[in-house]
Design a binder for these strands. Structure first.
Lengths: 224, 224
DNA sequence: CGCATAGTTCGTTCCTCATCGAAGCATCCT
DNA sequence: AGGATGCTTCGATGAGGAACGAACTATGCG
């Protein structure tokens, strides 16, 4: 029996799927709230809360309380490096490329990422909005352009800049290797897509299926 | 829910104490047999075998069969780097220095490491043997010196060089940060210590307790 | 003050997985 | 061949821990 640092304890913290998802989500560098992490991990809030306290106790996370929001973030670069190392091994040994089924294909095209749209459609939308200078992309940050308010108002989306949560955020897409739009604006756009019934959510999946007419409407609105 | 490499799967492999001990033991770089790893992990052979097949399936280990021996080793530097990273985090966040109890003190002085002696006594012994050129230390390797055979024969230990297993091997000591002697010679020395009743093994522990007379005899024999 | 939102705690259920004994293969030694 | 050693497989047992609903606390808003 070996002595020394308890590596099993740390590894088992990462070894639970829900916690691993949370940690992966935090690898972006931005701190997230408990409810955001719950959605990211696909578990209920109580479950997420339990996991988060375990991660805190294990020293893997830091906590910044802001009013009733509690922002969890990775404890430091050493922890991030560890996740990277594990991810590297997982990617290396796990090229168990399951043949992508129909649902996976749909997922690549459009899916829900927390509360906003991800996938090829979402990436294309963000790039178009930036090209038209409705949004301004400054390195990793995304800002509203001068015409943003009127542009989105015309579509039927008004931008709440008062919220604590940022209006725009870049979120790295898994399938494509580019970013899509998160933040309250990203959420509002997803809301509109579902409200207008341009698309529906697949049951028990993150996939978002556009109807033919809905796809056309979406493209007219955001990809014109 | 995140996509991409299944980091939880890899981390959970490391997250079991028995498997973590095995992996730590293999961090030395030398491949070990299933029974060695079972002892190292403190589990029975069937249990160890089950763990090893899981680690194999996870791609963390390589297997080299030599006759009826099966030598398990880390799959590569990437895996080793991952273990390092996890160990680093565990050491950083876990300075939960429990006050060392009496048994821990005894463990630091002398304990069993698989089939040979470890701890301060063992480290001192190896350094003395090297200083007297009975053994020759070449970087990480340990060789028998010219006088080794006669020296150990005088003590009552004959060296079997025929065995597949190496006669001498350096094994990094956990408590002290230096090496002690493993291999068949290390095992033979431990056998002698116990056979002469210079020391006894603590029940349910790896600690080795020397009697006052036994300690004297040991020092006369190996530390002179 | 009352309502809504964000989180945690508690208690229960359930399932995975680590564990070991016994038995079965495989390989080596003489 | 026959025995010994090294290791794996099988089957049964048991404990840890992940999950969620319900209830509770805390903060913000009007």
């Amino acid at each position: 029996m070996r002595e020394g640092p308890d590596i099993a304890r740390i590894a088992s913290l990462v070894g639970d799927p829900a916690r691993a998802n949370m940690l992966s989500a935090l690898m972006g560098g931005t701190a997230l709230t408990a409810s955001e992490l719950a959605l990211e991990a696909g578990v209920s809030l109580p479950t997420a809360s339990s996991h988060l306290s375990k991660l805190m106790e294990g020293g893997l996370l830091t906590l910044a309380s802001q009013g009733r929001h509690r922002y969890y973030g990775l404890a430091g670069p050493q922890v991030a490096g560890m996740i990277e190392a594990i991810t590297g091994v997982a990617a290396a040994v796990g090229p168990q490329r399951v043949r992508p089924g129909p649902r996976d294909a749909a997922m690549r095209v459009a899916r829900v990422c927390y509360d906003h749209l991800a996938g090829e459609q979402a990436v294309a939308m963000l790039e178009r909005l930036v090209a038209r200078q409705v949004l301004l992309r400054d390195d990793k940050e995304i800002q509203l352009g001068p015409s943003a308010a009127s542009h989105f108002a015309a579509i039927g989306i008004d931008i709440h800049t008062k919220a604590r949560r940022p209006v725009c955020r870049a979120c790295l897409d898994w399938s494509v290797r580019r970013s899509h739009l998160a933040g309250t604006l990203g959420a509002a756009i997803l809301d509109k897509i579902l409200a207008e019934k341009w698309a529906r959510r697949e049951k028990d999946s993150r996939a978002v299926i556009f109807s033919p007419a809905g796809k056309q409407a979406f493209e007219n609105t955001f990809l014109a």
